[in-house]
Amino acid sequence: MTIASVTQLICFVALSLTLVVGSLGVVLLPNIVYSAFLLAGVFLSVAGLYLMLNASFVAAAQVLVYVGAVNVLILFAIMLVNKKEEMAEIPGLLLRRVLSGAVCLGLFLLILRVDLTTPWAVPGPAPLADDSALLIGIHLFSDYLLPFELASVLLLMAMIGAIVLARRDVFSSDVITGEPADQGLLEKERTPLLLESTAGETTLLEKV
């Protein structure tokens, strides 16, 4: 065994261990913040596996998109609504857990069977090394153009949906006047409340 292959083996074992243990932790840990941080570790070890497959561009993209964007946003959302609330007791929790565990185990066995019965080509196709970014670009703009564009349309829809949900007031109308209740109107509605309270205070003062 050469030094390179030993290093490769050690890296593979370490990455796979962090991947498996980390993803079990993501699912099983009760603290959601720990799960989110572990998810970052899982994404990083997946990137490491890509690196071992000589797909350095995909690995860097994995880190940038999943760790740098998706995971940071997940953490951001968790920390913005960081409420420690007691969950209501769910009836039949044990049965639910057993059932979902059984479904997961079944899926795992299915994948394992596929893995064992597929005649994998060993060694796989020759690595592209540094040309991979170039080839990915060529494919994205030729035979994979339609899926690529569809994916971007999907993302656009998700973004518009998020805006609609976040600023629902823009798209609804005032109940009494029938006018569109935009941000300005909402603020106007808030001002009388303040005025009322000050008016109340003045009346109080007058009484005194």
């Binding site: 561009f57 860097a60 040309d131 970014a133």
Partner: peptide, 17 residues
Amino acid sequence: VGIGVFLWIALSSIQPI
């Protein structure tokens, strides 16, 4: 490495975590 500056951009996105 072939991905050069992209590696830097990807790595610097880990920092906020």
